[in-house]
Computed example of a mutant assay.
Amino acid sequence: MGDLGPPGAEREKVDIYRDTWVRFLGYANEVGEAFRALVPVGLVWATYGISTAYVTADAVDKGKKAAVAHGDKPGKTMMVGAAVVDTFIWQALASVAIPGFTINRLCAASLLLLGKTTRWPLPVRKWTTTAVGLSAIPFIITPIDRSVDFLLDSTLRKLYGTEEKHKP
């Protein structure tokens, strides 16, 4: 393919952790939590391993990009450290801890409620709970992302002098 854009124009590079299918690896634990009633708990924990690997890889990637962007400027180590810490904490909260807890509690509540209000067989209640958990995932993402942005902007990002919004 030919060159896109005007000559000399800098093209935005694709961020593999945010602009491609790789981003969905961060949602593995939510899917695992949705299936908790149906699969062995070890499989659920394995999905947390996948999500944590994604979070770690994204943090390392952002550190490498910060290192390149800051070259030999003074304060480079601080900026690289801030990029890694900010990305890791943001992703750990917004992609693993808070959504995993949310889906876990939602599924537990729905399974309990279905058990008290229906006479459905247990397998039907478990599959229904899984469907509830999976269907909730798209609705919890944006509020959690915004809440974590607010939390970090109000706390940690003040410590290292930046309140830049994380791009989920």
Score class of each variant (00 low, 15 high):
9 A>L: 09
9 A>G: 03
9 A>I: 01
9 A>R: 10
9 A>E: 08
10 E>Q: 03
10 E>S: 03
10 E>R: 06
10 E>C: 13
11 R>M: 11
11 R>P: 06
12 E>F: 12
12 E>M: 06
12 E>S: 05
12 E>N: 09
13 K>V: 15
13 K>D: 06
14 V>I: 05
14 V>Y: 07
14 V>M: 15
14 V>N: 10
15 D>H: 04
15 D>C: 10
15 D>S: 13
19 D>P: 09
19 D>L: 02
21 W>D: 09
21 W>S: 11
22 V>W: 11
23 R>S: 01
23 R>T: 13
24 F>P: 03
24 F>H: 13
26 G>T: 10
26 G>F: 13
27 Y>K: 15
28 A>P: 06
29 N>H: 06
29 N>W: 12
30 E>W: 09
31 V>M: 03
31 V>W: 08
31 V>D: 02
32 G>K: 01
33 E>P: 07
33 E>R: 13
34 A>Y: 05
34 A>K: 00
35 F>C: 02
36 R>Q: 06
36 R>D: 03
37 A>E: 11
37 A>N: 10
37 A>Q: 11
38 L>D: 06
38 L>V: 07
39 V>P: 01
39 V>Q: 14
41 V>R: 15
41 V>A: 04
42 G>Q: 00
43 L>H: 05
44 V>S: 05
44 V>N: 12
44 V>Q: 06
45 W>G: 04
45 W>I: 06
46 A>H: 11
47 T>V: 11
48 Y>P: 06
48 Y>N: 05
49 G>M: 00
50 I>Y: 00
50 I>K: 03
51 S>G: 15
51 S>Y: 15
53 A>H: 10
54 Y>P: 12
54 Y>S: 01
54 Y>T: 08
54 Y>L: 11
54 Y>W: 10
56 T>M: 14
57 A>K: 01
58 D>M: 00
58 D>K: 01
59 A>M: 11
59 A>C: 13
60 V>W: 07
60 V>D: 10
60 V>Y: 00
61 D>K: 10
62 K>V: 11
63 G>Y: 12
63 G>F: 05
65 K>A: 15
65 K>F: 14
65 K>S: 02
65 K>V: 11
65 K>E: 14
66 A>E: 12
66 A>K: 01
66 A>R: 09
66 A>I: 05
67 A>G: 08
67 A>I: 08
68 V>W: 14
69 A>G: 00
69 A>V: 00
70 H>A: 01
71 G>C: 05
71 G>V: 09
71 G>E: 13
71 G>L: 02
72 D>Q: 01
73 K>N: 12
73 K>Y: 13
73 K>F: 02
77 T>Y: 07
77 T>A: 13
77 T>W: 12
77 T>Q: 08
78 M>P: 04
78 M>D: 14
78 M>N: 12
79 M>P: 03
81 G>T: 15
81 G>H: 05
